[in-house]
């Protein structure tokens, strides 16, 4: 019999260290998620257009009625829109994870000798890349409609760091939602109920001072507001107060809890 393509051991795995494979496995799956961005341009376009609509809506329709004191409304707005779009954009992680689950791809990945968080990390990093593109477009549009930031290059780096850290954190929460929801349909509304209050009951579109007292307590102390206020302060020079480090503590705290929890869910209950 001629040597079959199927003969056992006709190919052998490479012998490398565990650490090497940890990077290789997540690298392969990150590459997969990144190529999804290229292959699914419609989705990226849709995700970018929505916040642009929001920006124009608030800039030209509602903005005039919102009092932001000495700061022009468009300058106030950009940080809020940027973080809101990062939060809504993170839901694509939920969608991707739920899709993989539904298609049985997660079962297949779990049957491979690879690192547990590899697939989730792929989607989360894909999310970061998508959000980076989105943010640049948003800032560009902002500049067109009158946004005049005063940030130095160093401050821009800090802004990028905070936005990416926030996206990374919320994407891990989104990964958990994708694993729990188990279907693409339920992910949609779950994500909406999480992200909607967090981004609207915040300092994203209006100063918190005019909100009802109970709402104000929530809005001023929840992580999204800290992230927005920190970014806003760095962009246009409003007082930064405790916002930057509180934002960092929140994000790192969320990552520290959500990442292992998501990995645990992936291993134990990720199937159906």
């Amino acid at each position: 019999m001629s040597r079959s393509k199927f003969a056992i051991g006709s190919v052998k795995p490479e012998q490398r260290s565990k650490l090497y494979w940890m990077f290789s496995d997540s690298g392969v799956l990150i590459k997969r998620s990144l190529s999804h961005i290229v292959k699914n341009r419609d989705q990226v376009l849709g995700l970018t257009i929505q916040p642009i609509m929001f920006m124009l809506l608030f800039r030209y329709v509602f903005g005039g009625a919102i009092n932001t004191g000495s700061v022009s409304y468009v300058n106030f707005l950009v940080a809020g829109i940027l973080i809101q779009s990062a939060a809504f954009g993170a839901l694509t992680t939920s969608l991707s994870v739920a899709t993989d689950l539904q298609k049985g791809l997660i079962d297949r990945i779990k049957s491979l000798p690879i690192v547990g968080w590899g697939l989730l990390m792929g989607h989360v990093v894909g999310d970061l890349a998508r959000n980076l593109i989105q943010s640049l477009v948003m800032i560009g549009i902002g500049l067109l409609v009158g946004f005049r930031p005063s940030a130095s290059p160093y401050e821009w780096l800090l802004i990028a760091g905070i936005v990416l850290l926030f996206t990374f954190a919320i994407s891990w929460i989104a990964a958990i939602m994708g694993l729990v929801a188990r279907s693409v349909e339920s992910v949609q509304w779950m994500g909406f109920f999480l992200v909607f209050p967090l981004t609207f009951a915040s300092a994203a579109f209006a100063p918190t001072q005019t909100m009802a007292k109970w709402l104000r307590v929530f809005a001023e102390n929840q992580p999204v507001t800290h992230v927005i206020e920190a970014v806003r302060a760095l962009m246009i020079g409003t007082p930064i107060g405790n916002h930057a480090w509180l934002a960092a503590v929140w994000c790192i705290g969320i990552i520290a809890v959500a990442m292992p929890f998501a990995t645990h869910l992936f291993r134990k209950y990720g199937g159906r």
Binding site: S35, K103, G104, D107, R108, S111
Partner: peptide, 15 residues
């Protein structure tokens, strides 16, 4: 040591 083919065609549709 194993290969698994589940009940669903577990392949990436975009790739």
């Amino acid at each position: 040591s194993i290969g698994l083919t589940g009940q669903y065609a577990a392949v990436d549709e975009l790739l």
